[in-house]
Design a binder for these strands. Structure first.
Lengths: 126, 126
DNA sequence: TTACTGTATTACGTGTCATAATACAGTAAA
DNA sequence: TTTACTGTATTATGACACGTAATACAGTAA
């Protein structure tokens, strides 16, 4: 099974790091809709962490609609679901405000920030 | 004493919310360098939280260089310190990547995201 | 039947968060 | 000097999240 890349670091919960790496792999196109998604026990063995910790991340992935489970078989990557307006608003208000705040604190200019944004954007498939 | 606006919500540690609100007040220009910064006990009484929780946020503000303490007198807003290159890189790589990832998940377009970024940017003083 | 899947449950240890109650040093004003 | 503010430090306690551990059960495939 193709295991997406994860390198665990201190400072954030393990299950969140697994969740983030899986999101990144799916949304960047590394894993495509219909592709098999690694099993709980496989990921756990590879990262040498507890299967329960992996399952916590998997539950979140299914809630987000990025992964679906075929009972008795395993998981696979889903077609991306329709986003919800409320989540869009939360990103555009809260998360962006926090980002701008930090950028201001670091004395970045708007052009610098925009350039960095576009650079990150281009790292994903369309 | 002028108390900056804070409305506590569930989901995030209280001291982080106090820290964020203080950062926002200072970086947005609501509180200017040289202005007195509210005392630990004053903020604690206003928000009806424990003074120790406020002090935790204050310690972080001093570490960031946004606030300084005059012993026996109180706190005041500092001149913003020089940003560190490492922190800039962390924002431009890690934080921006996470933002772009979420925006992609919500199927935002790059122009939409850029427009929202500029809108948030304009909410602060230059 | 055997060996994989996901899922659920209970228990334990650890650390963070928040509160609480004090205590101490520095400064200003009555 | 006394009083009343500042920030700071310490210790204790309770609630909760996180991670691990050990099982158990149902569904599917070879």
């Amino acid at each position: 099974m193709n295991l997406f890349a994860i390198d665990l670091k201190a400072g954030a919960p393990i299950y969140e790091q697994v969740l983030y790496a899986a999101r990144k792999a799916i949304l960047s196109g590394e894993l495509k809709p219909g592709d098999p998604f690694p099993s709980v026990r496989e990921i756990a063995a590879h990262l040498r962490i507890n299967p329960n910790t992996v399952q916590k991340a998997l539950t979140a992935l299914k809630t987000e609609g990025l992964v679906e489970t075929v009972p008795g078989i395993g998981n696979r990557v889903r077609e991306s679901p329709e986003p919800r307006a409320a989540e869009r608003a939360a990103l555009l208000n809260g998360d962006l405000e926090a980002l701008v705040l930090r950028a201001r604190q670091l004395r970045l200019t708007l052009p610098e920030l925009e350039a960095a944004l576009r650079a990150q954007w281009s790292r994903f498939q369309d």
